[in-house]
């Protein structure tokens, strides 16, 4: 639709929920219960700074450095801090590693708890009822929907996130990446592979 000032002599009216959010914000700011600067900092963090590239850095380091991997599995928050990634206060990140006989998958059956500092805001499917209700009940069928087939006999463990504990899956390092450095390794780590609904890219894939 062409932008035409004559059609809109006044400002475009936002949707009802958008107006309700504005109302909450102005009420709470006026009462001094929230700082606009604090909101702005949070917005910037989650819109620009935080995302799956941070989780990929952590996974790539774990692939390249066995001692770091051990530290990550023992105390993920401390290991993340080595890379300058800080968790949220009161939240504990737990890293769970895939192995030849064992696949890990993460869900939040209550709402949508997710390791924000490492992966950013979860995708819509992670927040959907379909995923939240089926991941625990029929993880293999869910994986099939994501196009993931595991080798025969592989066990699947599903981790249910909470307000206090957020999980990060450490996928297996793809074969054919011997001698790769961390920056290159990180390009193989997908968001879904760190949730457990995907596998890392293969080194020969375009």
């Amino acid at each position: 639709m062409p932008h035409d000032h004559h059609d809109h002599p006044h400002s475009l009216l936002p949707s009802d929920p958008a107006l309700r959010v504005k109302a909450l914000e102005s009420l709470l700011v006026a009462k001094g219960l929230v700082e606009p600067a604090a909101m702005e900092a949070i917005l910037q963090t989650y819109e620009e700074r935080v995302g799956p590239h941070l989780g990929a850095q952590v996974v790539a380091r774990a692939w390249a450095d066995p001692a770091f991997r051990d530290r990550l599995l023992a105390d993920a928050n401390a290991a993340m801090a080595e890379l300058g990634i800080s968790g949220r206060q009161g939240e504990h990140v737990v890293a769970v590693a895939n192995s030849p006989g064992q696949h890990n998958m993460v869900v939040c059956t209550l709402c949508s708890c997710y390791p924000w500092p490492l992966l950013g805001i979860p995708p819509a499917w992670y927040k959907s009822d379909a995923y939240r209700s089926r991941a625990v009940r029929e993880p293999r069928a869910v994986l099939a929907d994501f196009g993931v087939t595991l080798p025969e006999g592989t066990g699947i463990r599903v981790w249910d996130s909470t307000a206090e504990v957020r999980y990060l899956v450490i996928p297996e390092r793809p074969a054919g990446t011997e001698g790769w450095d961390e920056v290159l390794l990180a390009t193989l780590v997908t968001r879904d592979s760190m949730i457990g609904t995907g596998l890392p890219r293969k080194p020969d894939a375009p």
Binding site: P14, L28, M39, Y46, I121
Partner: peptide, 12 residues
């Protein structure tokens, strides 16, 4: 507004 709401909640 999703972003505003998210930021407001986390800030609170």
């Amino acid at each position: 507004w999703h972003a505003q709401l998210f930021a407001l909640t986390v800030a609170l």
